[in-house]
Simulated scan of single mutants.
Amino acid sequence: MLVTGASRGVGRAVAAAFAAHGDRVAIHHRDSADLAASLRAALPGEGHVVVRADLADPAAVAAMVDAAAEALGGLDVLVNNAGQAYPHPITGVSYAEWQELWARTLAVNLTGPANVTYCAVRHMLGRPPGSPPARVINVGSRGAYRGEPGQPAYGAAKAGLHAMGQSLAVALAPYRIGVATVAPGYVQEDETNAAYKVPRGAEQATQSPFGRVARPEEIAAAVLWLADPAAEWASGAVLDLNGASHLR
């Protein structure tokens, strides 16, 4: 299985959960080679591999997915976890900055996952007869529904990712490929991703009636279940994982 953005945060927890389940994992990163290597060394089992690509580069995406499939002997699960948010409030940036940040955000959070999925599905379609069903799991966001005024392209990209997952769930079901999405709210920081998060922990925790934010392992547990052969009927679903902080 291939996890994008696996060197830190939710992606790291997802990789650990699948490895503990006995899967071999391709750990994707863009520029976190040391973190990716430390994760590979810490995972239980053997045969894990580190792969690199800038998801905004279509050629690099194709080469990365092919490398993962070759190292693992095929692909049966893809987790589109990689993402990045760039602040760009409409009243706080120039027109040139607005355009550049929309393009960058969509490339990483929507077009990139779409390209990874296209390439991964090519390997899933070639699975031997009798193989378990394949899965594509997207990591979306609560922001797709409640709005992201400070980073509107991120909310739009995640909404697009949710919609892409539902479209592909219909398109790929005849090939025994299920597609589902999780939509987390805020997730707890750790030493691997603290530099990438806004330092508003106390305020974030008050948004849920549980008085806390999610642990990465909680998101990983849901992804692991959605990838299970028994979860086929969840294909097309978008699973909210926000501790009742946003209801729809």
Rank of each mutant, 00 (worst) to 15 (best):
V3P: 07
V3F: 03
T4E: 05
G5S: 03
A6L: 03
A6I: 04
G11W: 03
A17P: 09
D23P: 10
H28W: 05
H28Q: 07
R30L: 10
A33C: 05
D34P: 06
D34C: 10
A37P: 06
A37W: 08
L43G: 06
P44E: 04
G45E: 04
E46K: 07
R52L: 01
A53E: 01
L55S: 06
A60C: 03
A60E: 06
A63C: 03
V65W: 04
A67Q: 14
A68R: 06
V77H: 08
N81W: 10
A82K: 07
T91Q: 15
S94P: 12
Q99A: 15
Q99Y: 10
E100I: 13
A107P: 09
A107S: 12
A120C: 07
H123F: 08
P128K: 11
P133Q: 07
A134E: 12
S141Y: 07
S141F: 07
Y145M: 13
R146N: 15
R146V: 15
G147T: 09
P149S: 11
G150V: 06
A153S: 13
A153K: 09
M164H: 06
M164Q: 12
L168Q: 04
L168T: 03
A169G: 08
Y175C: 07
R176G: 04
G178T: 00
V179C: 02
T181H: 00
G185Y: 01
Y186F: 14
V187C: 02
E191L: 10
V198F: 13
E203Y: 04
E203Q: 12
Q207V: 14
R212H: 06
E218F: 00
L226F: 00
A227K: 02
D228Q: 11
A234R: 08
H246T: 04
H246D: 08
L247S: 00
